[in-house]
Design a protein around this nucleic acid. Sequence first.
DNA 1: CTATACAGTACCAATTTAGTACTTTTAATG
DNA 2: CATTAAAAGTACTAAATTGGTACTGTATAG
Lengths: 183, 183
Amino acid sequence: MLRISKLTDYGTLILAHMAGLPGRLHSAAELAEALGLGLPTVSKVLKTLGRHALVSSQRGAHGGYVLTRAAEQITVADIIDALEDQPFGLTECSASAGVCSMESDCRIRDNWLRINTVVRQALQSVTVADMVHPDAPSPLARGLVSNEPASHRMHGPARLGSRAAATSLAACIPTPRADDQEI
Amino acid sequence: MLRISKLTDYGTLILAHMAGLPGRLHSAAELAEALGLGLPTVSKVLKTLGRHALVSSQRGAHGGYVLTRAAEQITVADIIDALEDQPFGLTECSASAGVCSMESDCRIRDNWLRINTVVRQALQSVTVADMVHPDAPSPLARGLVSNEPASHRMHGPARLGSRAAATSLAACIPTPRADDQEI
DNA sequence: CTATACAGTACCAATTTAGTACTTTTAATG
DNA sequence: CATTAAAAGTACTAAATTGGTACTGTATAG
């Protein structure tokens, strides 16, 4: 139904909460309490996030979890990759391969692959840090086209400068059409 | 799991196939045969598409379905809206309202709303016609930034010229980050 | 008036997802 | 070194969603 799973949603909540008090250890119990979620559930999410190296854990008494990277460097796409078990892709045939039945030479598939790319890029453009800071407008809102990206965006590795011309999603409004309805 | 349902996928196949032979009536049986799908399933999809006015039906002997609009004016977003029963939105709280439990003042939600918008725009930018024509590169691929949009794109209503500066999704590569992994 | 084809409803089966329980391992601390 | 706090791992149950089918009704062409 084109939804992320609840666990993934919890993941964003948990990481955002942890990002609010950086450097500190957060026990699963503390997070469950703060977010109003069940302890086993929070625990499960954190374990998975740990397995994907988004948080690291300290076992034993006074243990807990910490973010392994700065909140600015954890994207929504990362969280989805960690918590959704199937590989990313809006359709089965575009996520995996060779499942498409027949006919139409599957030009369709090519289009899904492209759509996937765009969707994924949208998800990669939002970080946990964006979720936390109330003041800073989200990257989707602020005009990133101005060649001065938000400062906290600077210390990520691999910022392909080559595509600097179009870093804004807000500015990226593809031609809307006919029955433009509310979201 | 961030997937569209199979029925929605079938919907794109069916509509694309119909778009290949425009003006003609297509019976559910014919489509099922051509696409290698079960007749009841195809029938179900077509009924739903009919209810959402993407196809119209002719009952009785030699009846069948036709597209109600030009293939250029049916977007992937339209198909999703018709066939997925829940309202569009990547998270429950961003699709509906007032389900968010507590805490964090839900700045999170705002961000999801924005992400939704971008994703939806991507889905709105691809039409059934794009799925069919093998030669014409998809709008996601071709550089729409060039101020001459593909001709078939012209007869849609409401083409907000004001945003003409950035009509390309391909050009819209938001700053990629750290662990850029394959899709 | 019969055959064909859509319309609607309801149902069943299978998959996915969410949440829970229980056991094991690790580390801090008195 | 025993106790306690906390994560790790595994497995299971229950609920929700999805996909597919069956059956009954209605319209139309010939």
